[in-house]
Amino acid sequence: MINKTVKNAQEAVQDVFSNAVLMFGGFGLSGIPENSIQALLGMDINGLTCISNNAGVDDFGIGLMLQKRMVKKMISSYVGENAEFERQLLSGELEVELIPQGTLAERVRAGGAGIPAFFTPAGVGTEVAEGKELREFDDKLYLLERWLKADFAFVKAWKGDTAGNLIYKGTARNFNPMMAAAGKITIAEVEELVPAGELDPNQIHTPGIYVQRIFQGKDYEKRIEQRTVRK
C-alpha cells in the first residue's frame, strides 16, 4: 500500500501557493477541515479562489481566511452566516459566484469523475442561467453547467488509514467525498488515523486513490452553529 501519511497540517499544506484554486469540504461548520484551515492561516498567501458550500462564520472556518484577506473569490451556494463576507461582497472587495447547492455538488463530482459538463434543471429562468447554454430534453429546459476542479482539495473525515481511505460520520460527509476526487492534490485530515488494513473495505466512503496526503488531526473544536435541543 502506498503510504500517504504526512506529519501534520503544516507539512500537508506547505506548497499551497497564491492564486491557487482550493476546495473545502463541509456544510456550515460541520465536516470542515479545521486543521488545514488553521495551517493555511499561518501562510503568506493570497488571491485564493475558494470553492466551499459555505464561507464559515466571522470567527471560524473560512471566515478567518476572509478576515485575513487571503481570498479573492468564493464559489458557494449559501453564505448567510458571515457578516464580513457580506460586507466584502457588497463593497466589491470579494468576487463571489453563488450557485445552486445541487449544481455545486454535481460540478465538483463531475470534476473528479472526468465529466466536463452536464445539463441540470436548477436555475432555468433565473440569473444563474445567464450566459449558459439552454437545451430542451423531453419537453423540459435544462442548462449546461461545467465541471469544477481544484489545485488543492481539503477534506475532513472521521477515520482514515495510511493509504488515504476515508470514512465519514453523520452529516459531516456532505461535500467531502466529491471534493476529495476533484483535487489535483487532496489533503485529508482525520480524527483517527489507522494503519492500512484496519478499516473494513466494505465501509470505506472515499477510496484512497483520490487522496495524496493524510494526517492525524488534532484539537477539533467542531463548533455548532445552531445548537437546538428539546427538553
Binding site: 458557494s76 451556494s77 449559501y78 453564505v79 448567510g80 457580506e86 461582497l89 457588497l90 463571489v96 453563488l98 450557485i99 445552486p100 447547492q101 445541487g102 449544481t103 441540470t120 434543471p121 436548477a122 436555475g123 432555468v124 433565473t126 444563474v128
Partner: peptide, 14 residues
C-alpha cells in the same frame, strides 16, 4: 441580502 440560494433552486426545479 446576498445569502445565496442554497438548495432552493435545485428543489423547485425538480
Amino acid at each position: 441580502m446576498v445569502k445565496g440560494m442554497g438548495g432552493a433552486m435545485d428543489l423547485v426545479a425538480s
